[in-house]
Design a protein around this nucleic acid. Structure first.
Lengths: 212, 212
DNA sequence: CTCATACCGCGACTCTAGTTGCATTTACCC
DNA sequence: GGGTAAATGCAACTAGAGTCGCGGTATGAG
C-alpha cells in the first residue's frame, strides 16, 4: 500500500510528516536524476529536502527504502499505453517507450536505479515486482483489444504477451549490455505479435509445473 | 584480456603476484557464494586470501573490479551447450541452464552478483558484456547446426536466436522479480524455435538504424 | 485551551570503506 | 650471486554511512 500525502491510513495525514514525505520523495528523484544510483547518499537527500538525516533513516531505513517508496509513489501516476491500430505496432510503441526510458537522462538514471536497488534489498525488489506487475497489467489492455479484434485467439495470456515483447529490450540493456536499435524493437514486436496470432500464448489447462 | 596464473602478458608470471591473484579470486568467489553481493567486503576477501587489504584495493580497485576480473577469469573455463537433437529442445536445455544458475546457492549468488556489479561500475559492465557475448557465441553453435539440418533458413542471425530464447528468463528473474516455471522455459523455447523456422531472424540487407 | 503522544531536529558517536606514505620483500635480469 | 624495479605488507589516517539518546515541536483529542 502506498502512503502519499492523502493517505487515510496514516495517523496524521496532511501534517508535518506528510510534508516531509513529499519533500524527501522529490529530493530523492531529483538527486537520482542528477547523480545516479551509485553516487546517491542519504546525507545529500536529507540536506536537499530540509529533513534531518536521522529522520530519513528512521522512516525509510536507507537508500533502498527510499527507492522502494518512490517506485510505489510512481505507481500511482497516470499512465496508459498508446493505441496505434494493430497489435504489432502497439508492441513497437511499447518497446520504444521502454528503450527510451533507459536512453536519456534523467529518466535513464531512475530506470537503472530501480532495477539496481532490487539487487540490494528485498524491500526494493518487492516494490519493483509490484510496479512491473502494475505496468504489465495496464499494458495488457492493448492485447485484450487485439484479441477482441481477432488478431489473437481467445484465452491467450495477455500479460504474458506484453512481457514477451519487452523482454528482449531489457535483456539487451541489462544483461547483454549492448545498445538497442530500431531493428531489435521491431523484431521483438514482430515475433511476439506473430506468436500471439498463432496461439502460442494460449493458457494451458494443466497446472503450472513447480518453479525452479 | 585475462591475467591468470600463466598469463604470458604479465610482467612476472608464476610469481607471488600470480599466486596472490589466484588466492584472491578464489576467496572472492567463495565469499560471494557464502555472503552474496550485498554483504561482501574487501576486508573479508583480503583476510581470507591472506593478501593485504591495501594490495587488493591497489590491484582491483574494489569489489566491482574483483567481480569483473572473476567474470573474465570464468570466461576461460570450458563450457559447451548440450545437444538434444532439435533446436526446440536445445533451447529448452539452454533456458533451463540459465534458470538453474539463478536458482540454487552458491551459484545463484554469483549470478546475481555479476549482474548487480554491472550497475555499480563501468568496468564490471564491460566484463559482463564480454562474458555474455562469449556465452552467446558458444551457444549459437546449436543454432548453426539447426540451420544445417534445415530447421531454420540460411542467413539467420544465430546469436540473436539464442538471445531471444533466454531473454524472457532473465526478464522474469531480474525485472519482473517473479518465479520462472517450466512453462515459461518451454514457451520461450517454442516461440523462438518457431520464429527461427519462419525466418524471423534473417539478417536484413539494409543497415541497422541508429541506437536510441 | 490544554494535554498526551507521536514525530522530528540535533549532535555526537561508532563502524566500516577506502587511501596514503614508507619500509620490506620478491622476482627477474645480468 | 648481486642489483633493481615492481609489488606487497603495514599501520595510521580520512571520510562517509548509519545509530542513538535527548530535548523540542507539531498534531489531534478532549
Amino acid at each position: 500500500m502506498s502512503s502519499t500525502d492523502s493517505d487515510p491510513g496514516s495517523a496524521r495525514p496532511g501534517g508535518r510528516t506528510a510534508r516531509n514525505t513529499a519533500a524527501v520523495m522529490r529530493a530523492t528523484l531529483d538527486e537520482l536524476g542528477e547523480q545516479g544510483y551509485q553516487r546517491i547518499s542519504v546525507d545529500r537527500i536529507a540536506s536537499r529536502s530540509g529533513v534531518h538525516k536521522a529522520t530519513v533513516y528512521r522512516r525509510w531505513g536507507g537508500v533502498e527504502g527510499l527507492l522502494a517508496q518512490a517506485l510505489d509513489w510512481a505507481s500511482g501516476w497516470h499512465w496508459e499505453p498508446v493505441r496505434t491500430g494493430s497489435l504489432y505496432t502497439d508492441l513497437i510503441s511499447l518497446n520504444e517507450e521502454v528503450a527510451a526510458g533507459f536512453a536519456v537522462a534523467p529518466e535513464r538514471r531512475i530506470s537503472y536505479a530501480t532495477i539496481a536497488a532490487a539487487f540490494d534489498s528485498d524491500t526494493a525488489a518487492e516494490a519493483l515486482r509490484a510496479y512491473m506487475a502494475d505496468r504489465h497489467r495496464r499494458s495488457s489492455v492493448l492485447v485484450a483489444e487485439a484479441v477482441a479484434r481477432g488478431e489473437a485467439p481467445e484465452g491467450s495470456d495477455i500479460e504474458e504477451v506484453v512481457r514477451a515483447s519487452v523482454a528482449p529490450i531489457y535483456h539487451r540493456l541489462l544483461v547483454c549490455r549492448e545498445p538497442v536499435t530500431e531493428r531489435h524493437i521491431h523484431q521483438a514486436a514482430r515475433i511476439t505479435a506473430d506468436a500471439a496470432a498463432a496461439g502460442a500464448f494460449l493458457i494451458e489447462d494443466h497446472p503450472d509445473h513447480n518453479p525452479l
